[in-house]
Design a protein around this nucleic acid. Structure first.
Lengths: 346, 346
DNA sequence: CTGAAAGCGCTTACAG
DNA sequence: CTGAAAGCGCTTACAG
């Protein structure tokens, strides 16, 4: 049916081996032969069969990209296309394809990863999230399959190659930044604590409080489960504390705006009554009111480097374990305000 | 090295054919034999090789998903994760995997699609965009490869299975809606005219003007190239016309907000001085100021049905050509205002 | 620089 | 209900 290597070999008066070597542009074939064979390929409209090559060569030229759907729903909305774009850039440069996970919940994802590895669907895997006690991670670690992660792993940190933002430091610096603006009472609206990113940011928030001698109060901390705080109540409670916060750190721009809207109903103005700083720098955040002070986390770079690391691992049998924090930028806009008159902002 | 069907056959005292049939759960094998073979599979930790199965069976159990990177940059940001989620849902249900395109520009995408088809990497393809004079589309059409599109095709509309919103009608209805609010001078900020979605919305805008006897002016129309209008100038020009518009339709929420910000600098208030209605209902649009009146285009559904249609095509040799418009919802919020006092909005 | 041969790990008519 | 055999379309030591 389809044109095969055999047909090309026959037409070009060479052996199938030679055709195969022309396909992979082996230096062991003369330019003359290559030209001849390539002409026949063109004439016959021959195209190497992907599956057959992979089966014979015992590789797939494909990387698996695993995303956590629960997060992709909202908080990761802007994250997802950008990180994929980063991975694509690297994959394309390496002539690799991307196989995307389709699972809906944690169990399905786990099964899918197992199947990718055991059925040899992919040569390597990128995990686009880092969760606490993640069976998928444990599995990959145990079978010693090439993989990298976007996000600091909860366990085995020294043994896993990953790329991340330094979320603890960023949160720490955010507190410091607010303190410099004169704030002493800083609330924190964090994400789902199943994710390491949430834990890290919370930790940074806490340790800054210790180092800077701020009074740390549990009442200043709100944990949102998925996308939005949704809990108007917790915001109301926060505002009605005896000593209400004058600043707030939100773990995502969309959460920040939802909070701002709730605050509005409570007649609290941002930044005049409450400063807000957030994470992720959504595309919209520059244009809406108030323009949000937020941390740009270089999502494209996260994807790109996670893929680059993966290619290193796949190419060398014993590539060293690496990890790197991608730099971030605090984008100062108008949702934060200085309490000390002389350094007025916004 | 790896455990193969041969090993399992030997251990279970059956032929490789039988093992193969157990893998695919063929009804021609007795339950007793199945149990026996499965036990051996478990004991040996056997997993069928994906590539080998595909090569022998001449299929891939994989669909290719092609996205246009130029758009994914911005306007499609919220679009991308949702449409993928829809496709995933269908793919997962059909036990198929997803292969994502990695190309950066139109030429690379074209090459990649050719390679997917000719090298038999995938069984079918979903095009996540519809462009004018798209070589990729022409190619798929000519080789008669199973594919569906999210977006009305520019050519061969009767011969291609696609799913879309009825963009002409939506734009038409949007004009009508604004007219009902008392607006007579309605501007339109559309997208890149290489995309059919932009053409369709513009057409709907125009035909509504004809049907409703509105004075249609070229000066009321702005075409943005990629993500953002970026052209403060064109907004300024619009506002300073002899008869400035009292309402504006933007092709994406993020564009709407960028416009709103520009208007602010010109001391034009939304919705008091200018009503704005937009497309796509971003997650943030409910929470920012002013909350945007926008059209929810059911992105998940678009992805889901595009995939479902594709599976129909792949399963039946001659599945009928289908097309369907997914329903949309106008979300009325506070960026539009009635000019007639008695139906005050916002 | 090129070829003959074995092999990658499955599926599927065909036969019984 | 099960098996023997051919085949899917390549790659890659090995040999020369």
């Amino acid at each position: 049916m389809a044109v095969t290597i055999i047909d090309v070999a026959r037409e070009a008066n060479v052996s199938p081996s030679t055709v195969s070597r022309v396909i992979s542009d082996s230096p062991r074939i003369s330019e003359k032969t290559k030209r001849k064979v390539r002409q026949v390929m063109d004439r016959l409209n021959y195209h190497p069969n992907f599956q057959a090559r992979n089966l014979a060569a015992k590789r797939t030229r494909t990387i698996g990209v695993i995303m956590s759907h629960s997060t992709s729903l909202a908080f990761q909305n802007p994250f997802f296309p950008e990180v994929i774009r980063g991975i694509c850039t690297s994959a394309h440069a390496n002539q690799y394809g991307m196989y995307l996970s389709t699972g809906g919940n944690e169990k399905e994802i786990y099964q899918e990863v197992k199947s990718m590895v055991q059925s040899k669907k992919v040569d390597g895997i990128i995990l686009l999230y880092s969760k606490v006690n993640d069976p998928t991670l444990t599995f990959l670690k145990e079978v010693d399959f090439p993989f990298t992660m976007v996000g600091r792993p909860y366990q085995y940190e020294e043994e896993i190659t990953y790329i991340d933002n330094d979320n603890r430091k960023i949160a720490y610096e955010l507190v410091k930044y607010l303190v410099q603006l004169g704030h002493q009472h800083i609330a924190f609206v964090g994400g789902n604590l199943d994710y390491v990113v949430s834990l890290d940011r919370l930790e940074g928030y806490k340790s800054a409080h210790i180092d800077l001698n701020l009074t740390y109060k549990e009442e200043y901390i709100i944990h949102t489960q998925n996308q939005s705080p949704n809990d108007f109540d917790s915001i109301r409670t926060l505002i009605h504390l005896d000593v209400p916060p004058t600043a707030l750190i939100a773990h995502d721009d969309s959460v920040a705006y939802e909070i701002i809207r709730h605050l509005e109903e409570l007649s609290i103005r941002v930044p005049d009554d409450l400063s807000i700083v957030s994470f992720n720098n959504h595309a919209l955040s520059a244009f809406v009111k108030p323009p949000l002070t937020t941390v740009d986390i270089s999502i494209f770079q996260l994807g790109l480097e996670a893929a680059n690391y993966l290619f290193e691992k796949m190419n060398r049998t014993q590539a060293p374990i690496k990890s790197r924090f991608v730099s971030t930028t605090l984008i100062e806009r108008q949702s934060t305000k200085s309490l000390t008159k002389d350094t007025m902002k916004g």
